[in-house]
Amino acid sequence: MTNSNPGAVAAPAPVSEPVVEVKNITAGYLPGVNILNSCSLVAGDGELIGIIGPNGAGKSTLLKSIFGLVKVREGSIALRGEEITNLKANKLVAKGVGFVPQTNNVFPTLTIQENLEMGLFQKPKSLAERLEFVTAIFPELGKRMGQRAGSLSGGERQMVAMSRALMMGPHVMLLDEPSAGLSPVRQDEAFLRVKEINRAGVTTIMVEQNARRCLQICDRGYVLDQGRDAYTGTGRELLNDPKVIGLYLGTLGQD
């Protein structure tokens, strides 16, 4: 594990051929007000990356910056070596980046199938193939395609949102608080779904409020604090590091 403070231990070995590489970005919603301050992150092919930290640390802002929803003022973001800094979301989707926001992530008046079709508007001819793929991961959806999304529970809506993002066959999935607002049982189901998506070959970057559970399932984790990547290491390293436990895990994501 390493942190951004002087005298920190050596950083982990660099990830070979990073799929996503965020270098020292400064970003924010309002002119002159920065939420992220020289923040960095790297995700390798097939990795599951967890991002934790206190409220207001910039976790969701980091995901939105990668997805072109927040203006990056300094630094750079690359996808497989290609510069994508401040690229519009629709172009990022076409390049293989999916994003699942925390709230308002389904079209409640549309059916499950119509929601999934909305996720494939750029490649409508692939509908049958992609429906087969997502219903293999989420078989419950295949039995309820005609049900309106507005009638679903929070956990079921999250399932539809993830599936819609998967319809375009993304190489990278950005998940913002997938367990937020769910019961403990539904939270466990959400984490299992995240693992299934990752096992299907999708590089996954997840912001999560349940810090302990996040670190238990991720390959590597980043702890954000005041808009900076304060600590990084494998999930196990961060779970067992006394400083991270004392500063962050003591008040974050209790089981």
Rank of each mutant, 00 (worst) to 15 (best):
2 T>M: 11
4 S>Q: 00
5 N>E: 13
6 P>L: 11
8 A>E: 05
8 A>P: 00
9 V>G: 14
10 A>L: 12
13 A>I: 11
15 V>K: 08
18 P>L: 12
18 P>N: 12
20 V>D: 11
22 V>T: 11
25 I>P: 08
26 T>F: 07
33 V>F: 08
36 L>K: 01
38 S>G: 11
41 L>A: 11
46 G>I: 03
49 I>L: 05
56 G>S: 09
56 G>I: 07
59 K>Y: 05
59 K>A: 06
61 T>H: 00
62 L>D: 00
63 L>V: 10
65 S>D: 08
66 I>V: 14
67 F>R: 01
70 V>A: 05
77 I>C: 11
78 A>F: 15
81 G>M: 13
84 I>W: 09
84 I>R: 11
86 N>E: 10
87 L>Y: 13
87 L>M: 15
87 L>W: 12
88 K>S: 15
89 A>Y: 09
90 N>T: 06
91 K>P: 02
94 A>M: 13
103 T>D: 15
103 T>R: 14
105 N>L: 05
106 V>H: 04
108 P>V: 11
115 N>E: 07
115 N>W: 05
116 L>I: 05
116 L>P: 05
118 M>D: 06
120 L>D: 07
120 L>W: 08
122 Q>G: 05
125 K>L: 12
126 S>Q: 14
128 A>R: 15
130 R>S: 13
132 E>R: 15
133 F>T: 03
135 T>G: 02
140 E>C: 05
142 G>V: 07
143 K>N: 10
145 M>T: 04
147 Q>K: 09
148 R>A: 10
149 A>G: 05
153 S>W: 04
154 G>Y: 05
159 M>H: 00
160 V>M: 00
166 L>I: 06
167 M>P: 02
170 P>W: 04
170 P>R: 06
176 D>L: 06
177 E>G: 04
177 E>R: 03
178 P>I: 04
183 S>V: 10
184 P>Y: 10
185 V>F: 12
189 E>A: 13
190 A>P: 02
194 V>K: 00
195 K>G: 02
195 K>R: 13
199 R>C: 01
201 G>F: 06
213 R>F: 01
216 Q>W: 00
217 I>W: 02
217 I>L: 08
217 I>C: 03
220 R>K: 13
222 Y>E: 02
225 D>L: 01
225 D>N: 13
226 Q>I: 07
227 G>T: 03
228 R>W: 00
231 Y>T: 01
232 T>A: 09
233 G>I: 01
233 G>S: 07
235 G>F: 04
246 G>W: 01
247 L>V: 03
251 T>C: 01
254 Q>K: 14
